[in-house]
């Protein structure tokens, strides 16, 4: 698997898109920091971008890479390699390459603006870590979609729909449900609703460290115990890990049975 990972990674590392992605983040961070020398403000703005763009890029890259490397996959399938290794290797290759673009694209400007001497270094690390998690989650989801759809156009369509759903529509339905059932105790419901969407989860995780957590804890005892303690942080993190593991597990299972 590591050989495949290595080759997928190199393959992407020389692809123009990785550089565009990297340069985009580099530019974005520099502009943000230039306009507003306050690291902590820049992190909040960046959070909004990361939460929307990282999943989108992860989804598109994942689907694109799968379809683009189909012939190559066929070539590998005939080699004495375990078939699950091929897909997991490719998946990790894409996810790692995207993560590295993200990591350096955001990291270099912030480091140059004195991140390590500032108090927000932990917040920034949380932002990066959640960004990496989102990359892994959405690339895995995209791989799942691509594995289950032979038709490229369909696969792309579903992938974009999935992103749209999790990034926007889910929150809309969530909000409608909350408003409709406002007579009932909703604190557990809303926590669970939040945990079930990786984007919401990631956002919460960042907000928890951005000092706005008190605003969340304001709502009631359940929220207070969740957001005001490490409990919320740990649970959110575990959920993110589960969000990576489940799609990866499905890649493993599907690739075991799929015909090529």
């Amino acid at each position: 698997m590591f050989k495949i990972l290595k080759y997928s990674f190199y393959d992407l590392a020389r692809s123009r898109w990785s550089y565009i992605y990297f340069l985009f983040y580099l530019l974005l961070s520099f502009v943000l920091l230039f306009l507003n020398n306050d690291l902590s403000k820049a992190i909040i703005t960046l959070m909004n971008v990361v939460l929307i763009l990282v999943p989108l890029i992860g989804t598109i890259f994942g689907v694109m890479y799968y379809y683009n490397s189909q012939e190559f996959t066929t070539l590998l399938m005939a080699q004495p390699i375990k078939r699950q290794s091929i897909f997991l290797g490719q998946y990790f290759g894409v996810a790692c390459s995207l993560s590295i673009s993200l990591f350096f694209g955001l990291g270099i400007p912030f480091a140059m603006y004195g991140l390590f001497q500032s108090a927000v270094v932990l917040n920034f690390i949380i932002l990066l870590v959640t960004g990496v998690f989102l990359t892994f989650i959405f690339t895995a989801l995209a791989y799942n979609i691509a594995l289950s759809n032979l038709n490229k156009i369909k696969g792309f369509g579903y992938a974009i729909l999935l992103w749209l759903f999790l990034a926007v529509i889910y929150d809309g339905l969530f909000l409608i449900a909350l408003v409709m059932f406002q007579e009932y105790p909703l604190d557990n419901f809303s926590l669970i609703g939040m945990l079930l969407n990786p984007i919401d989860l990631a956002r919460t995780l960042i907000i928890l460290k951005l000092d706005i957590s008190a605003l969340l804890g304001y709502t009631g005892a359940v929220f207070k115990s969740f957001f005001d303690t490490n409990k919320g942080f740990i649970i959110s993190f575990l959920m993110l890990i589960i969000w990576v593991l489940l799609p990866v597990l499905r890649i493993y299972l599907v690739s075991k049975k799929k015909d090529f």
């Binding site: 393959d11 020389r14 692809s15 490397s69 012939e71 190559f72 066929t74 070539l75 005939a78």
Partner: peptide
Amino acid sequence: YLPQIADFPSNI
């Protein structure tokens, strides 16, 4: 094994 259609990754 020689596969039928030799379509390799293009940027390699």
